[in-house]
Amino acid sequence: MLDATTLNPAQERGATVELSMQAALNLALAETLDEDPKALIFGEDVGRLGGVFRVTDGLQERFGATRVFDTPLAESGILGMSVGLAMAGFHPIPEVQFDGFAYPAVNQIICQIGRMNYRSRGTLPMPITLRVPSFGGIRAPEHHGESLEAMFAHVPGLKVVSPSDPQQAYHLLKYAAQRPDPVIFMEPKSRYWQKAQVNLHDGGTPEGARVARPGRHLTLIAWGAMVSRCLQVAELAEEDGIDVEVLDLRWLKPIDAEGLAASVAKTRRAVVVHEGPRTSGLGAEVAALVTEECFNTLKAPVERVTGFDVPYPSGDLEDEYLPGIDRILFGIQRVLEHRRG
């Protein structure tokens, strides 16, 4: 486990430190527990084991079993308990071990957590940060690779965010944990192990979308694990003379419509990429926002490159299901070829 005492003076002063996303999230949680005496972490195996992805490693040892604790295997209980704890003034940071395990708690998340502030006329806010290891890419069995962002983004009262790299993970989790509103924090599990430089003291603005790579000819819009794939695609497109901008959406509810519009107004072409199924996926919302904001400047309809309308497949078929480099390049080609009239 990394904590402030293991950082050297240069890192303390703001130099960057190399961290995996796991370690960046672990550090953000440790600092949140340290700074916020009302913060609690709980879920399946988050305590003694330290989480199946090691994100809560060492936290129970350091902060004790009353602040970091294991729960029974009952997601409805984990989220139901979060409601009660939030009512009592705590700041719960529960974990649902895998995205596919969130379904048993949908009633608590939608009917209670999403609505309590509204129902109580603002007297019972729900400052809950629900961490959900999300999306595919690790060849896991069924129920371990879902894309729930469209479902949660559809629920009034919830905020939804997904980091794309260790820097985003560290700063967005700390920010989410300080919100007075419930935040669904979707961690891209296929990116947990990749290391990158993190500036612990300067995360830029935690609100809205961010330009992950500037470009002139077309905007690729993505979030979570698809951001790094889109950055690879942008490098390949450059070989062909196409200058691609990659917009890391980050917040999936609310979506940064202004940031979207600013990027696409410049490039005049947009392709949105996501892992979840195509129909009623968040790509449809993105396409609608882009069309509303940029209809007159768009050179082509917004293209969607997505998962298919099937249950998430077993590991052997994952590469066929997830938007791959060639499928994204095909999407870009279709947009480039489009001619009005």
């Binding site: 989480g51 199946v52 690790i138 069995p141 599990k189 002139r216 062909d240 060639d326």
Partner: peptide
């Protein structure tokens, strides 16, 4: 340390492979 959780495997970072080439006349 980089062992996956109780399920799944750690994805290996690979150099991106492509078969599709972009071919477009930009009339910007």
């Amino acid at each position: 340390d980089d062992t996956a959780g109780i399920v799944g495997t750690v994805p290996q970072e690979q150099a991106p492979k492509r078969r599709v080439r972009l071919n477009a006349v930009l009339d910007d």
